[in-house]
């Protein structure tokens, strides 16, 4: 819990990050920036998926449709947060010369997405019409 708060503080205090270590090769920073953007695109793809479920599965029962769409939108918001968090942590690790941070989120995200995909397929196949 404390760790999460400390990480959140890093988001808003670039000077804390920049005060440590030395500036890495700008190419590494740019690679880090591209990773950040890739996570942002993942988030946006999830948001798009939420809209797609809502728009293109109109025959679903309302609570299925809204539930799946909201799950995807929420996953999208989670990904935007992770994009910033991981970017800051990677930048700090590179400045300190430490190993890059590890994370369980990719596995968690894969699990959530797998479940959502399974739910969509099941619901569409069973014709769970409202």
């Amino acid at each position: 819990m404390f760790d999460a708060l400390r990480e959140l503080r890093l988001w808003f205090s670039p000077e804390t990050v920049r005060a440590e270590g030395e500036t890495p090769d700008y190419r590494f920073s740019l690679a880090n920036e591209r990773t950040f953007l890739a996570w942002l695109r993942t988030a946006l793809a999830l948001v798009g998926g939420g809209f797609a479920v809502d728009q293109f599965l109109p025959h679903l029962a309302d609570w299925w449709r809204i539930g799946l769409a909201l799950a995807l939108l929420l996953a999208g918001v989670l990904c935007t947060g992770r994009a910033v968090n991981h970017w800051v942590k990677c930048e700090r690790a590179m400045r300190r010369g430490e190993d890059l941070p590890q994370s369980r989120l990719p596995a968690l995200l894969a699990l959530i997405l797998g479940l959502v995909a399974l739910a969509v397929v099941t619901v569409v196949l069973l014709g769970c019409a409202g």
Partner: peptide, 16 residues
């Protein structure tokens, strides 16, 4: 990141 999350929030408001 806030802009991307905002689009998602608008989506939640529109869908829900």
């Amino acid at each position: 990141a806030i802009c991307a999350a905002l689009v998602a929030a608008c989506g939640a408001a529109l869908v829900g």
